[in-house]
């Protein structure tokens, strides 16, 4: 136990604090995931519009999401917004904004992909039956697209959870930060604490993300045939 530095975990409230730290990360993830899923749906539908302006806007948005590292976006909002707009955006809010911005783009692209995977004749035959655009989406397209979409969006959720680790880099108190605090506090008594703490954090992320990934894979297999 001491060799691996696991002893610190059982000292005082350390384990509790780590879990609470993970809680902050989970909280940020949940808020961003919900925003991303809801707005991403709308954005995805928006992207399928033939309107050239809509196309250009969504293209630029998607390229930003595709090319810029989330950490750069985080820096821009956290450092830049304060400077340029005179706003004082908290680290926590910055991360929610950035993860949602990123998540909406990714989710939108997944939604677009699943909508476009529906063959054209499905749209055409629904239209031939006199359905409105809204009715076509609601009754014909969305039910079919959802099966493609769900496994991929579950994977997106695990990616968003993993991304929360970046918050450490702009100093939101969450699991990484708590881990560092515990390591600092126990530097003298338990020099191997660093192993136990980082090992535990790694394991915690794994325990959250792995079951979700397995679920996504299970659904993908189940629905593929």
């Amino acid at each position: 136990m001491e060799l691996l530095g696991l002893d610190v975990l059982f000292k005082g409230s350390n384990a509790m604090r780590l879990l609470q730290g993970l809680g902050v990360a989970v909280e940020i993830s949940i808020i961003s995931v919900v925003i991303s899923l809801v707005l991403g749906m709308l954005f995805g539908i928006f992207m399928t519009w033939k309107n050239p302006v809509a196309r250009v806007i969504s293209r630029i948005y998607l390229e930003i999401v595709r090319i810029m590292p989330q950490l750069v976006l985080l820096f821009i909002v956290f450092f830049g917004a304060t400077r340029a707009l005179g706003l004082n955006v908290s680290a926590e809010l910055s991360s929610i904004i950035v993860f949602s911005f990123w998540g909406v783009g990714e989710m939108g692209d997944l939604v677009r992909g699943s909508l476009e995977s529906i063959p054209v004749h499905q749209y055409e035959s629904a239209a031939a039956l006199g359905m409105t655009k809204g009715q076509i989406y609601y009754h014909v397209v969305i039910p079919q697209a959802v099966r493609r979409l769900i496994p991929m969006s579950i994977n997106l959720v695990t990616r968003m959870i993993k991304t929360t680790s970046l918050i450490l880099m702009i100093g939101v108190v969450e699991v990484m930060k708590v881990g560092q605090q515990i390591i600092e506090a126990n530097r003298m008594v338990s020099p191997n604490a660093v192993f136990g703490i980082y090992g535990t954090i790694l394991l915690l992320y794994f325990l959250v993300c792995w079951p979700i990934s397995m679920l996504a894979r299970h659904l993908e297999k189940k629905w593929s045939n």
Partner: peptide
Amino acid sequence: NTPLLIQLFFMYFALPRV
């Protein structure tokens, strides 16, 4: 299923200790 940041922390700070 784990973030790179923490993988790096583990490799850079924790593994050498042990």
